[in-house]
Computed example of a mutant assay.
Amino acid sequence: MSSSDALAKSFSVSHSGIFGVDEKSMLEILVKWQPEHLSTFRNETSSIFLKDERFPFEKCEEILLKFLKREFKRFKDAVVQWTMHPWERDARMARKALKRGSQAYGLLIELACTRSSDELLGARRAYQSLYSESIEEDVACRVEGIQRQDLGEESGLKDTIYCLCAPPVYFSKILDSAMKANATKNEKEALTRVIVTRTDVDMKDIAEEYNKQYGTPLAKKIEDVALGNYKDFLVTLVQRALAKGSE
């Protein structure tokens, strides 16, 4: 495979349902190229660059620009979430879910069902500090009456029961949905969230349940659907949890 083909593959992962961008491969190729190499690449890669109809230059497809911004962001978000205090992390996730509306309310149920009373209290304190209002006030402001009463139904009664009574089953299902090619934005974000927040809690149990339910080791599945530093980071966290659990 030529360097141009390899770079095009790194850029074009959006069409295959792969998560992340292969940053290492991109950098290894791009730092060696001169302006003429870049010009040749733009001219020869019609799947990424289109010739402008009016002026003599090649322009990047808008959909690819949006994709690259999102995929490069995955690794940064994973690292930030990993280093952030758990209280702040949960508070920020709750805030994002409330701002997104009903399609993200399942995350609120997840937080309520899988955190200890001390962790929930900490998240409430962090929320108050970060946003100068309580999470209860924000829910009352953002969620309409009937939605507020039925918030627990947004993620489905079955999922809520699993979340409460069998977290490994619940998180295995969430991870499977997150790694499908047709996953929604909310579903895809769960891959980072679950790996980062459960590594030091019950990731060994989740990984074992995932293997049981889907017949594939979790780390192997992540390697199949993720790329670059993002992939390496998540796989390392899973392997760390498995190694710790076997001690």
Rank of each mutant, 00 (worst) to 15 (best):
L68R: 10
R89T: 06
E61W: 11
I195F: 11
D176K: 04
L27P: 05
S172N: 01
C141I: 09
A126M: 05
E144S: 12
S10C: 06
V79A: 02
D77Y: 09
E189P: 06
C141Q: 15
A183D: 09
V169G: 01
D150Y: 07
Y162Q: 11
N182I: 08
I206Q: 06
S10G: 02
V238I: 11
A6R: 07
T114I: 01
Q128D: 11
F75G: 02
V139G: 03
E154L: 05
R148Q: 10
I161E: 09
E58Q: 10
G156C: 04
H15F: 07
D205G: 13
A91I: 09
T114P: 01
K188D: 08
V194I: 15
F57A: 06
G215R: 05
S2Q: 05
G122Q: 03
E247I: 12
T114M: 01
T114G: 02
L218N: 01
E209L: 03
I195G: 09
W82M: 08
V143M: 07
E23M: 10
R89A: 10
L7Y: 10
E23I: 11
G228C: 02
A178D: 00
W33N: 04
E61V: 14
Q149F: 09
M1R: 09
R115W: 02
S39E: 13
F171R: 01
Y162C: 07
Y105N: 05
I29M: 05
R198G: 02
S47W: 01
T216C: 13
H37D: 15
F41A: 00
R125Q: 14
C60P: 05
A94T: 12
S10W: 00
L218D: 00
I195V: 15
F19S: 11
S12N: 06
E23S: 14
E133Q: 14
K32Q: 10
N186Y: 15
Y214K: 03
S14F: 14
D202P: 09
L111G: 02
S155R: 10
L121Q: 13
G215H: 07
E208M: 11
K180D: 05
L164Y: 05
G17H: 09
S14I: 11
A166T: 07
V79T: 04
G228Q: 03
M84H: 01
H85C: 08
M179A: 03
Y127T: 07
E119P: 00
K24C: 12
L218Q: 03
T197F: 06
T192S: 13
D159A: 11
S129L: 09
F41M: 00
Y230W: 05
D205H: 15
K99M: 15
C113I: 03
V79N: 01
Q34P: 03
G106M: 08
L242A: 08
D138N: 10
E209Y: 04
A126L: 04
N182W: 06
G17T: 08
R193Q: 12
Y127A: 07
I135S: 02
D5V: 07
R54S: 13
